[in-house]
């Protein structure tokens, strides 16, 4: 849940930290990364032409205007799914890795061949899920598959966190999900209406100078990937001061408001 949004925002955030980043849309069936990055009108060639060597890699790469450190390799025709092999994906990512610090692969939904292709080309993985039973169960399947494909380390991002519902215990808590999936937590992204606005515009939240809570969460994830230590704060427990603590206690015992 939220793979493409994470890829777009993380790509921009890493580029802002001075890294060269290539993002690869591996969701050939339902490609959207170009749309979230606002690059849909500038695509000329795709991964398909690069593989067929009918064009050079730098001809196919689409540079982001505001963050030229970031380049997108667009997904080709959906029919690519029929013949694409894990080795092809490894070839493409190998080419991208030569010229960038980070290669982010946006994996397709599901655990079918498309996912396996993407995972075959990955060295490590970030699993993003929401705190809902169906999403956590799916994530567990994905984590199991990644383990068999020797992709590691695998880190977890918890998306669409609703602090109020968590405090009311009407939602799986952050600890519940990390305990069940047994993965280190890389980031917590709160439910944020700004995400929709940013996708409407094709401008990832991490482009902003004063990002909204979700944007800040993506920036923090990028910094953590670069080795910076930024504490993870569980938003459902984040209340300070005597009055706030009293309210929190009241809220926990009664489950009201």
């Amino acid at each position: 849940m939220g793979k493409t949004t994470l890829t777009a925002n993380l790509g921009i955030a890493l580029a802002r930290l001075g890294k060269t980043v290539a993002v690869l849309d591996a969701d050939f069936g339902l490609r959207n990364l170009d749309l979230l990055l606002g690059l849909e009108n500038r695509i000329i060639y795709t991964a398909q032409e690069v593989l067929a060597t009918t064009c050079r890699l730098d001809q196919a790469l689409v540079k982001h205007k505001q963050q030229p450190n970031l380049a997108l390799l667009p997904a080709g025709n959906p029919r690519m799914l029929e013949w694409l092999t894990p080795e092809d994906m490894q070839t493409i990512t190998g080419l991208l890795a030569e010229r960038s610090d980070y290669v982010l692969i946006d994996a397709p939904a599901g655990i079918e061949q498309g996912f396996k292709n993407a995972a075959a080309a990955a060295r490590e993985a970030i699993v993003i899920t929401t705190p809902e039973v169906s999403a956590v169960r799916d994530a567990d399947r994905v984590i199991g598959l990644l383990a068999t494909m020797d992709v590691k380390p695998v880190q977890l991002v918890l998306n669409r966190v609703r602090p109020k519902m968590m405090a009311n215990q009407e939602m799986l808590s952050v600890d519940d999900v990390t305990d069940i999936l047994a993965l280190p937590l890389l980031g917590l992204v709160q439910e944020d209406e700004r995400v929709i606005v940013s996708t409407n515009r094709g401008e990832p939240l991490t482009l902003e100078d004063n990002p909204s809570p979700a944007g800040q969460a993506y920036l923090n994830i990028a910094s953590r990937l670069c080795g910076e230590e930024i504490p993870l704060i569980d938003p459902s427990k984040k209340r300070h001061g005597l009055r706030a603590r009293l309210i929190n206690k009241l809220r926990k015992t009664t489950g009201l408001f």
Binding site: E132, R137, D140, Q169, M171, S173, D176, G255
Partner: peptide, 18 residues
Amino acid sequence: PSGTMARQRLQLVLAHDR
């Protein structure tokens, strides 16, 4: 609370899945 139920149900179903 439904969060607790969610946790219990998940743990059960995942034990089987895994």
